[in-house]
């Protein structure tokens, strides 16, 4: 069993900024960065599935999401942060030091890591539609990653579900390949930012299906051929023939392993007070795991910095 002063769980902008600051403060942090996956819950976090980031200050020409995350990781490494490519499977927060179990340990009976201070930056992941054959159709028409899969839908009719910035960003990206992109939204107005709305409305490949939800996925030979939409006002059903469906309907915090141990709101987001302190002394939370309002790379990074400074002060106060 290894003991660390500080362990950071998660490696998006919040976790890596916390790692940069705590490593510069000589706290020798270990980052448990997650496991490779094609969902948004993976090392580097949600930005690994995006393309161009235009609003991160300091990059006037923009930069690619994965590039930003690779840079942040190198920066944390440079100051001595160490990394473990695994997921945390269980934590014990009722005794000090805190104990952690990880997905790469053989024997799950005993913890492999302990730490004095814990920074939780596990973020949030994309929600799926939860339709019955959705999982089988991932990779066969249903996609969770427009940047990975858009290329294969050249000249085809496809749809994006959602009405936020992520949905519009995906739709606009997909117009580079697709013949047409239908944005399916359950309300009659978008919650996306003005600039994204203006771009979507101006794009002639994009049409909107307002007040609609997807109720069925149709396939032939295990490949998506269309969907059924239901009107949220009239309950009328209508078919839509598409070969690609991209889902961007919102997020859910990655807090399963902390359930019952930390105070959370009804949606499962960790509640923080006095900066990044949680309901357990010595446990701190930053980034999307405790924020369903702002959810930006820059706010996540900012709160990661706050967590690192809070940890530094807290460790000093323990002596």
């Amino acid at each position: 069993m290894e003991h660390k002063k500080v362990i950071v769980v998660g490696s998006g902008p919040a976790g890596l900024t916390a790692a940069i600051y705590t490593s510069r403060a000589d706290l020798d942090p270990l980052v448990i960065e997650g496991e490779p996956s094609s969902t948004s819950d993976q090392p580097g976090g949600q930005l690994m599935l995006t393309t161009e980031i235009e609003n991160f200050p300091g990059f006037p020409e923009g930069l690619m999401g994965p590039e930003l995350m690779t840079n942040m990781r190198s920066q944390a490494s440079r100051f001595g942060a160490s990394f473990q490519t695994a997921k945390v499977t269980k934590v014990e927060l009722d005794t000090k030091p805190f104990a952690l179990y990880t997905s790469d340990q053989q024997d799950q009976n005993d913890p492999v890591l302990t730490c004095d201070a814990l920074i939780i930056a596990t973020g949030a992941r994309s929600l799926m539609l939860n339709l019955k054959n959705e999982n089988e159709l991932i990779g066969h028409g249903v996609s969770t990653c427009a940047t990975c899969d858009g290329f294969f839908f050249r000249g085809q009719d496809i749809a994006v579900v959602g009405g936020g910035d992520s949905a519009l960003e995906e739709a606009l990206f997909l117009t580079k390949f697709a013949k047409s992109v239908t944005i399916i939204h359950r309300r009659d107005a978008l919650r996306a930012s003005k600039i994204m709305q203006d771009r979507a409305f101006a794009n002639e490949k994009i049409t909107f299906a307002w007040n609609k939800v997807v109720t069925e996925l149709h396939s032939e030979n295990a490949v998506l051929t269309g969907i059924t939409l239901e009107d949220t006002v009239t309950s009328e059903k209508s078919p839509l023939a598409i070969t690609g469906l991209f889902v961007a309907i919102g997020h859910s915090p990655n807090t399963e392993v902390f359930k019952g141990l930390l105070e959370m709101d009804d949606a499962g987001y960790i509640i923080t007070h006095a900066g990044t302190h949680t309901s357990v002394d010595g446990v701190f939370a930053c980034g999307d795991v405790q924020d369903h309002k702002y959810r930006q790379a820059i706010t996540a990074a900012g709160s990661g910095c706050m967590a690192a400074i809070d940890v530094e002060h807290w460790l000093e106060s323990q002596h």
Partner: peptide
Amino acid sequence: ARRYEVMSIPTLILFKNGQVAKRIVGAMP
């Protein structure tokens, strides 16, 4: 890629004696 109906990457396909033996879609540990 078209011939093997790859619509999502990474897709890993295991070929044995020239035939598809296993198809794995998406990154994983």
